[in-house]
Write a protein that binds this DNA or RNA. Sequence first.
DNA 1: TAGTGGTCTAGACCACTGG
DNA 2: CAGTGGTCTAGACCACTAT
Lengths: 257, 257
Amino acid sequence: MTASDRPSQQPASRRIADTLRASIERGELEAGQKLPSERALAEQYGAARNTAREAIRLLAEQGLVTAKHGRGVFVREPQRLFRFGSDRYSIANRETGLTPFRLEAKKQGKVPRIDVLSITREVPPPDVAERLQVPADSESVVHRENHYFADDEPVQIVSTYLRWEEAEGTLLMQAKSGPNGIYGRLEELGHVMTRVRDEISARMPSPEEARVLDLLPGVPVLEVLHTSLDQNTEPFEVSRYVHRADQTGLLYELPVS
Amino acid sequence: MTASDRPSQQPASRRIADTLRASIERGELEAGQKLPSERALAEQYGAARNTAREAIRLLAEQGLVTAKHGRGVFVREPQRLFRFGSDRYSIANRETGLTPFRLEAKKQGKVPRIDVLSITREVPPPDVAERLQVPADSESVVHRENHYFADDEPVQIVSTYLRWEEAEGTLLMQAKSGPNGIYGRLEELGHVMTRVRDEISARMPSPEEARVLDLLPGVPVLEVLHTSLDQNTEPFEVSRYVHRADQTGLLYELPVS
DNA sequence: TAGTGGTCTAGACCACTGG
DNA sequence: CAGTGGTCTAGACCACTAT
């Protein structure tokens, strides 16, 4: 009757989870296959349904399974990664007239879509102000917020910040910013991208990000805080990329001096 | 009596979580501060304890709070990131005689420690075999597994793979591989590191990784699959880094051609 | 010892999916 | 419609922490 009629040292939910995980890893339960229902598991292990449910939660937390409401719990399919390479900034790629994301999508045979959510003058977040070298206490930047899709699946949220003094009254304030996108316009303003600085971290998504990116539980996000430096090593653009980590990765190839 | 005596559209657990999150974000609940107990929250919101508990689980999943058994639930302290820069591969840094990790730790005023777990001849994992250009069906590599600590806190798990034919009978098979570590020995073998290729992804840790890295629930890991290329663009070393994402980040600074 | 989170039980109703 | 996961209740005992 008590929680441990056999003092197994491990909680019952943990034992059930471990058994299921072993099945998955041995390939007895293949990707896409349905697990026994929570009620079936509970009966099978002589436990309450909540205990079986807890076991499944443990597996979902590790990204091994996914629950579909009304259908069942399924072994998650391994996802091929949509990989963003460091050559996405390369000028050689600029000749196509495509922006980096459209280029990367084309390369991988996907149909890109970019939704421009807003283009507004704002007070910059502290980390952005520091990197763009603008005041953090006035409306010193233009914030362009975009959502990127590949084959209509949300892939990343991008917030781009530019100096207000440079963007005011230019195509940088427009959704369609012309050939080569904003980098084309910034080049006309005298900023040739010479170096980039990407600061990378991983974390769990906020509820808002989980909603926009349509994230399943147990899927983290990759955050890239990107700074573009010009020929004078002056920062002229800062962007925050939030990628879904189950479908995207990053690739950096660089020379060692 | 029913689950929704007020049809609030949101589950009760979600509403409780949202209220608590708002408190945290407004700063009413500061970092390190204790939340009301599960039993107190349940009474306060007229819900069962399990419902309050579910609300706290939602917050923990987002990395906002941490439960301490027997003590309470606390608002998580923001962690300063231990950042690994792409200059960690730089030859300029090689003159110190320190390995990249020791160098990075010193820079940040931390005491590094490296535990060498094993150095064994093995069949390489498929992704490693592909990048190191060795057979995936024979014991073609040496696998060095290390755990890295900063101030005695586990920071990363590193698996380094080298060609068996090159490592056999050399210092590369020893825990102490001499000045400048394995890169020093590999240079003597004629491999000058000229380019590096880092493939980055984020995911939730396996139970084993969570144990070794002492990870709290809701903390993802950053995985870097690193390839070193020599003066002939030949790969000569592949490493898999698994970082805890709550305390470490990555930094890449590179020229744009 | 009292208070906390960790786990579990044995129910219940709801929301969603599919035949 | 039956079967599934999603949420919730009102208890219970255990394990850990502090006093």
